Simulated assay, not measured.
Amino acid sequence: MKSCGLIPIAAKEFTDHLCSKNFLLIAGILVLICTVGLIGGLSDYREDLDEYNERLSVAGSEEGPGFMSERPSILSIFVSIGAQMSVLGAILGIALGFDLITKEKESKSLKQLLSHPIYRDEVINGKALGSAAALLLPLGAVLAVAFAALLIFGIVPDPTEFSLILVFGAVTALMILTYFSVALLMSTVAKNSGTALIYSLIVFVAFTMLVPVATNDAVMETVIGEPPELPTSAYLPDIQSTGDEKMEVAVRAIDTESAEWQQFREARREYEERRGAVNDLLSLLSPSLNYEAILGIFGRVSASMTVTTVMQNGGGSVLIGDAGSVDPASGVAGVGMNVLALIAFPAVFFGLAYSRFMRLDIR
């Protein structure tokens, strides 16, 4: 006779979390802090919108220097929420997963549970399903508060913004489930809950701190070499000098037609491509960096930006160019690998936890 224990186990796990003071405390703190981030994001958005309307009224249809050509987007509000979610969401996921199996082993209830006509896979799947449902409740509450706040302020998302907000909710859920899956794996590997928590925190620190360190300048220069130096022969004579008692800055022009400058620009382009490829590869190894990369498109979708790259060589500064605005569709496509990585992380870690639990020696 086939067992039907999946749903009852999932329902019990879900109910147990809702009745847990620890879960309610952490979830409440998450919602509260994200609400504070939401308020800050709304304030910044209103200021940007007022500035945009002021410039629009002054400039009319003519776009002069410094004119903000794109209307501020409400997506910047969700960047503020995401900044809080990237840490607190991970902590919530770890808090729900680190003792999911170990507490059953420590209380000897797992052996008693498996003595009933129930399959092992239903136990691990039911516990994971119930916990995942509980994890999504605080996220749903944050999104509900965000939409309510937007409507209160008379802000209605357009179809593109609404779609990207749904993307934000989905990738945030994947990020939280990733750390839950890590903690679940550690709960199946460790002998007790304390050890499982330590293992989970070590993985969290590795993902959020050690991997980003691997992308800094010192490591990159060790891996792919130092960037090419700007040749001094590419400079034209100084054309302007300004200064005061504390600082003097020499503004130097670049002879962009010189052969040295052309060679430098090509070498710089190749160097940046190599560095970008290594950086992207390393970033894919961290759920947090993938999440931040995806959040980056929310801050760039409706922003007109001028990019200035400063090259320290002879005290000069070089204006490289205008980055312009980012199209939403191309922005999402540009982080496709990051999205796939976020999907893969919880699948891989849960798969490992599932495999370990199925071979677990219950005594």
Score class of each variant (00 low, 15 high):
265 R>H: 03
266 E>N: 03
273 E>I: 13
233 S>R: 00
267 A>G: 03
266 E>K: 08
258 S>R: 03
284 L>D: 01
262 Q>Y: 00
281 L>Q: 11
265 R>A: 09
254 I>D: 04
254 I>M: 15
252 R>W: 07
280 D>I: 02
240 Q>H: 14
265 R>W: 02
274 R>V: 04
233 S>T: 07
246 K>R: 13
284 L>G: 02
256 T>C: 06
252 R>Y: 07
236 L>W: 08
264 F>Y: 07
262 Q>H: 09
282 L>T: 04
252 R>M: 15
248 E>N: 09
271 Y>C: 07
250 A>I: 12
238 D>L: 11
262 Q>F: 03
270 E>I: 06
242 T>V: 12
263 Q>E: 08
273 E>L: 11
271 Y>T: 08
279 N>Y: 14
282 L>I: 15
284 L>H: 02
268 R>A: 08
238 D>C: 10
269 R>N: 09
277 A>G: 02
250 A>C: 06
278 V>T: 05
255 D>M: 06
260 E>N: 00
250 A>K: 10
243 G>D: 01
240 Q>Y: 15
255 D>E: 10
282 L>S: 02
232 T>I: 12
241 S>N: 08
244 D>V: 05
240 Q>R: 15
283 S>M: 06
271 Y>H: 11
280 D>K: 09
248 E>C: 05
257 E>R: 13
263 Q>V: 01
266 E>V: 08
254 I>G: 06
256 T>Y: 10
241 S>C: 06
235 Y>R: 04
268 R>E: 12
282 L>V: 15
247 M>I: 12
235 Y>H: 10
261 W>R: 02
273 E>Y: 06
273 E>K: 14
267 A>M: 10
278 V>A: 08
251 V>T: 13
245 E>F: 14
260 E>A: 01
237 P>G: 14
263 Q>M: 04
259 A>N: 10
239 I>G: 14
242 T>Y: 06
261 W>I: 03
264 F>D: 00
255 D>C: 05
261 W>D: 01
258 S>I: 03
234 A>K: 00
278 V>S: 04
259 A>F: 04
232 T>E: 14
267 A>W: 02
270 E>P: 05
244 D>W: 04
260 E>R: 00
255 D>P: 02
265 R>S: 11
254 I>A: 06
253 A>N: 14
253 A>C: 11
258 S>P: 03
262 Q>W: 00
245 E>H: 07
253 A>G: 08
242 T>W: 07
233 S>K: 01
232 T>K: 13
246 K>E: 15
240 Q>A: 15
242 T>A: 09
232 T>C: 01
274 R>S: 12
251 V>S: 13
250 A>S: 13
250 A>E: 12
251 V>W: 12
242 T>I: 12
247 M>V: 12
262 Q>T: 13
280 D>S: 12
275 R>C: 09
254 I>R: 03
246 K>G: 10
251 V>C: 08
267 A>T: 01
237 P>W: 02
275 R>M: 13
275 R>T: 13
238 D>P: 14
270 E>R: 12
274 R>D: 07
241 S>P: 04
236 L>M: 13
243 G>L: 02
260 E>P: 02
272 E>A: 06
235 Y>N: 04
272 E>N: 13
274 R>N: 14
274 R>T: 05
275 R>E: 14
263 Q>D: 07
261 W>E: 03
241 S>F: 04
248 E>F: 04
259 A>K: 10
270 E>N: 13
250 A>G: 04
247 M>S: 11
277 A>Y: 07
255 D>W: 05
